[in-house]
């Protein structure tokens, strides 16, 4: 077994680098087809995956647009204030608004208004920002930390693997939601960063397992054996041979995992344990609207639909990328 600390044949470092690169490049040039452009990738997608991808793009652009409106343009972009009571007192005009609570769909309120007359469409768009950030940060955490740990232990094995994977197993064995609630309740102030951080930390074990499984397989591949044989340093093998080959799998896994994260964040919001009010999230919108579900189901339906479609889309796109990656692997 080769470990990272084990003695290796001595080669000049510059030579090792060149040989290693040559081996990889050579193998890559035979196995990999020409890298597809985003347009070509989109064309490859089945219809349902295409629609899912479009939905995700809309959500991402919507969330960024909403954030820009608040952070840069001070509410001057054409999107209603998600926290303004449209029937409330307007300090600028000195008058009450004309909207009603739980108003139906109209030209001024595309998805109606909630129980305190706030524009539901604006709240959904602003809520998308929370889901987007939490999903992105947790994926980043998972890929960077979990991915590195998994790739490392899959390559070095030995005690390092035993210790790290035991810790991962312990964390995975604990009910995730309970652990999440415990962690979240520690923080008195729950802003977006804190929530993302907590969910991100809890995402690490799953990514570690996926990365380790891939790392184990890649460690036995010919180009890794060749690199090892010519005396490439273990660190170089890890960072130049293992991790780059684990990364595509992690990225496609991240999409599926993000779907789970969106649901988790929604659950926390529903329980009132996510970002603090009045920041809108899909979960707290559903929670607040459920009181009036007998009067108007739509205020529950719209955020639920946004959440469901986003999760469905992440799963569809993630699954498709995974399948696409698998085909490539088998072709290798």
């Amino acid at each position: 077994m080769t470990g990272i600390g084990q003695a290796q044949p001595e080669f000049p470092s510059d030579r090792v680098g060149r040989i290693s690169t040559a081996v990889q490049t050579d193998a890559g040039s035979r196995a990999k087809p020409k890298r597809a452009s985003p347009r070509e990738v989109f064309k490859e997608m089945p219809l349902l995956v295409k629609i899912s991808a479009v939905w995700l793009i809309l959500i991402v652009f919507g969330a960024i647009y909403a954030k820009l409106d608040v952070a840069v343009f001070d509410g001057s972009l054409p999107l209603q204030n998600p926290n303004l009571l449209t029937n409330g007192f307007n300090a600028d005009t000195g008058e009450f608004g004309t909207g009603d609570p739980i108003e139906g769909i109209s030209g001024s309120h595309w998805l109606g208004t909630d129980a305190i007359a706030r524009d539901t469409f604006a709240r959904i768009i602003h809520g998308a920002w929370v889901s987007l950030i939490v999903a992105t940060i947790s994926a980043a955490f998972g890929i960077v930390v979990g991915g590195f740990l998994g790739a490392l232990v899959g390559y070095v094995r030995g005690r390092t693997e035993t210790v790290i994977m035991s810790m991962v197993d312990v964390i995975l064995a604990f009910p995730a939601l309970v652990l999440l609630l415990a962690l979240v309740s520690i923080f008195e102030v729950r802003d977006l960063f804190v929530i993302s951080l907590v969910i991100g930390v809890l995402s690490i074990p799953a990514y570690t397992r996926v990365a380790r499984a891939n790392s184990l397989a890649i460690s036995n591949r010919e180009f890794v054996t060749a690199a090892r044989a010519i005396g490439t340093r273990p660190n170089s093998i890890l960072f130049r041979e293992i991790i780059p080959n684990v990364l595509p799998t992690l990225l496609s896994y991240a999409m599926v995992a993000s779907a789970f994260v969106v649901v988790v964040e929604g659950s926390l919001s529903f329980l009132g344990l996510s970002v603090q009010l009045p920041q809108s999230t899909w979960g707290n919108m559903i929670n607040q609207a459920r009181r009036d579900i007998k009067v108007d189901i739509y205020q529950v339906l719209w955020p639920s639909l946004a959440l469901s479609l986003t999760v469905l889309s992440l799963n569809q796109v993630g699954d498709w990328f995974q399948k696409r990656g698998s085909v490539r692997d088998s072709a290798l």
Binding site: N83, L85, G88, N90, A91, G272, Q288
Partner: peptide, 20 residues
Amino acid sequence: PDPTLTAAMQVIESVWTASE
């Protein structure tokens, strides 16, 4: 964290905040 109370609280918050 009752939805009814939460709604009422957000009305109050909204107007207090509107005072700037």
